[in-house]
Design a protein around this nucleic acid. Sequence first.
RNA 1: GGAGAGUUGGCAGAGUGGUAAUGCAGCGGAUUGCUAAUCCGUCAUCGUGAAUAGCGAUGCACAGGUUCGAGUCCUGUACUCUCCGCCA
Length: 427
Amino acid sequence: MLDIKFIIENKDKVKDGLAKKGYTDIDIDALAALHLEINKLKTSSQALAEEKNRLSNSIKSASAEERPAIIAKSKQLGEDLKAEQDKLAAEQEKFNNIMLRMPNLPSPESPVGKDDSENVVRRRVGELPKFDFTPRDHVELMEMNDWSEMERIAKVCGSRTYAIKGDLARLELAIHMLVLDKLAANGFTTITVPSIAKEKPLYGMGYLPFASDEIYYLPSDELYLSGTAELVLNSLRADEILNENELPVLYAGFSPCFRREAGAAGKDTRGLVRVHQFMKTEQFVICKNDIAESEKWHQKLLAISEEVLQDLELPYQVLEVCTGDMGAPKYRQYDLEAWVPTQNCYRETHSCSNITDWQARRTNLRYRDNADGKVKFAHTLNNTGIATPRALVPFMENHQQADGSIRIPEKLQPYMQGKKFIGKNVK
RNA sequence: GGAGAGUUGGCAGAGUGGUAAUGCAGCGGAUUGCUAAUCCGUCAUCGUGAAUAGCGAUGCACAGGUUCGAGUCCUGUACUCUCCGCCA
């Protein structure tokens, strides 16, 4: 959500930002006019309320003869007021619906572009693996090591589900532990959160009304399945006024995540790349309303996830996401993509975003500033810590050996009982 | 699933139909004079203002209702706690 006063005072800047993000259907001038109309209705209904309050308060001291007239007048005012307030509520709803659909404005640093083809590679880190054999893709590797039940589980649970077993299943959890330890070492509080949520947090995060196709809904309970721990973490402190001394709030959230993948029909149907249910360790930050401060945290979150990929010894690239490919809530976004040898390309493993105060305005998450005692909307940021099983795809493929076994990078070995390799052919 | 109790500001906590006490914390100011204390104001949202000035509206979990007037009475919903039932 944006501040309506900011919108009105910076119409050109807002129009420019909306255009860069590809939102051409929002009429800022009409929105400003609507706001003006609402304020007029507020003023007129407040005048009626004031008069009515005055009359009501005078009844106590009025004589018995005066009372019937005052009551009648007050009753009439009450009806007028109700009519005025109904008008106001209708206009307000129109206004709110537009405001809920207003995306965040992009950073002036973000590359301007219309879609993912215009994202900019900022850097590539790590050497691509060279194989003296024909590398197998991750599905073949799972099959030859008896690490999965992909066909059976599809019969039981439907397409885009997965079941992995043995050392690969243990690896999946080991990687999360490595990331959770790293985040804890950086001051993040480990927190496991539910994957079911009410509707309100979905609006707070900006999932609704923007991406309703992506979300599982449980109608008999009026609950939704969460696509990320960010959803819950973003609303965990909703409606609070934090003390500035509590900031920054750093959460390392772990949760099962659910996505319908409705918009990805036919894409990545093979294997572990795109599944309906996965596990994610999420980095989430609440910090002061200060762009230098939140940009600092944005870089910090990015650095942590780069370190994760380095610990996993995966070659990756840092992508700065262009204005047109960014989600509505985002001010600035980096994606990390790890190399997938058999696809001969980098695939997304992390998405790192500065949301500024856009979500905090929606969840009413504020803090009291120590310097001036004022209540301000906080800034929020989020980044993937690690998401599995997708991360297992580049992991298995980059670390595969000729015999189909998988090398375990040094940093991960303590989480795998010291094993240097896993696989059927490991002696 | 059944029964009961509860939900008031950043926090604590009064308030049984007539303008939301009080304390703590924070912020602003004054005063004393010194590892701080005291006093006053302020303390959420919005409208009108150049205004962080005044004036006004709203705000007691949420949504309705009764009433000239609702934190207070009525209805529904959510959540919390206690007990019973079920249960990893």
